[in-house]
């Protein structure tokens, strides 16, 4: 109240600072003190302003573009009306109505409020400063602090979920062919290799290695030994009355010194094996249940025995 430069309402009236009568026909009634003129950027107060009707609050404005920044410092009941202590500061030169920056707190119309006109002067000459505000279009940045946090939170959660579920190394997902197709393909391949071995003396090392393991796999499936460790499975097969002799002859052909095996012996080994494979291919997949095809076993045994004698 003792701030120099403040004027008592009477003095203000005399100085004609309030032009509300002429502009709007009615003005806010001020029972305290007011400074209605200021320079750009300097905050000043208007005390004990009485506005009729329900309580008021400051309108939302964009602080980067508004010419007046208004704040309600205090609100007092005044009969059916309210008294307000206001602080305002001008951001650009001109004459402004503080009432334009107020609204009813209960949301009702506030167009009937009396004006409270203030003047902002600039110390500098007009257009001496060219302020280029790089203000983005509305909507490009979050409207409020809360929404910015909300968007940030959503991004964080989505990122975390992505890291947990998508960041882990994915197992290569390939369409697996049906087991029957695999079995058929294997049988076909064994037959091809056997025929190549019988036909061509120069059976390559890779083909030998492939044929040997395919034969082991053939018998392993036939004897339901796929769940057994490979070395144990081979040991079991070598002692098998049907598979054992065949496997051991194949081992000697494939792994012993070449001079120890003649072409005739190779043919004698491979011919019954080819018959066995052909029979399995005709009857379907080599039995996975271990029961095999009874006739297949019998045939295999007899053919293997023939091969052995050969």
């Amino acid at each position: 109240m003792t701030i120099p430069g403040l004027f008592v309402i009477v003095a203000l009236s005399l100085a004609g600072a309030f032009q509300t009568e002429t502009q709007t026909g009615a003005s806010a009634r001020i029972e305290g003190e007011a400074q209605v003129e200021s320079t750009v950027g300097i905050p000043v107060q208007v005390l004990q302003v009485i506005y009729p009707g329900p309580e008021l609050e400051v309108r939302d404005v964009d602080p980067r573009t508004t010419p007046i920044v208004l704040r309600i410092d205090a609100v007092y009941p005044h009969g059916a009306d309210y008294r307000y202590d206001l602080t305002w500061s001008g951001m650009e030169a001109g004459t402004f109505n503080l009432t334009d920056y107020l609204r009813r707190k209960d949301g009702t119309e506030s167009t009937d409020l009396p004006a409270c006109t203030v003047t902002v002067k600039s110390v500098l000459a007009p257009d001496s400063i060219d302020i280029q505000l790089d203000i983005p279009e509305k909507g490009l940045i979050p409207a409020t602090y809360r929404s910015a946090w909300l968007i940030g939170g959503i991004v964080w959660v989505v990122g975390l979920l992505g890291f947990i579920f998508l960041g882990r190394r994915r197992q290569p997902s390939s369409v697996q062919p049906a087991p029957e197709d695999i079995a058929r393909a294997k049988l076909r391949r064994i037959e091809q290799l056997i025929e190549t071995a019988m036909r061509e003396p120069a059976f390559s090392v890779q083909q030998k290695a492939e044929l040997d393991l395919l034969i082991v796999d053939f018998w392993r499936e036939r004897r339901d030994l796929t769940g057994v460790a490979p070395d144990k499975a081979i040991q079991t097969l070598r002692n098998d009355p049907e598979a054992g002799p065949l496997l051991q002859r194949a081992e000697r052909w494939l792994y012993d010194r070449p001079e120890n095996t003649s072409r005739e012996e190779i043919s004698a080994l491979l011919a019954p094996l080819r018959e066995l494979v052909r029979e399995a291919a005709i009857k379907g997949r080599p039995s996975l249940s271990g029961t095999g095809t009874a006739s297949g076993r019998e045939t295999g045994t007899s053919k293997a025995a023939e091969g052995g004698r050969g």
Binding site: R169, D212, L213, V216, A229, P230, D231, I234, Q235, R238, E251, R252, Y255, D256, R257
Partner: peptide
């Protein structure tokens, strides 16, 4: 035997290989 067969390889693989390999963290 006087020649090696796959059974030898499969039987010895664990004892020869396991202490020489290291798994990834994953």
């Amino acid at each position: 035997r006087d020649y090696c067969i796959p059974e030898d390889l499969f039987s010895l693989a664990e004892d020869v290989i396991l202490h020489r390999i290291r798994l990834t963290y994953e």
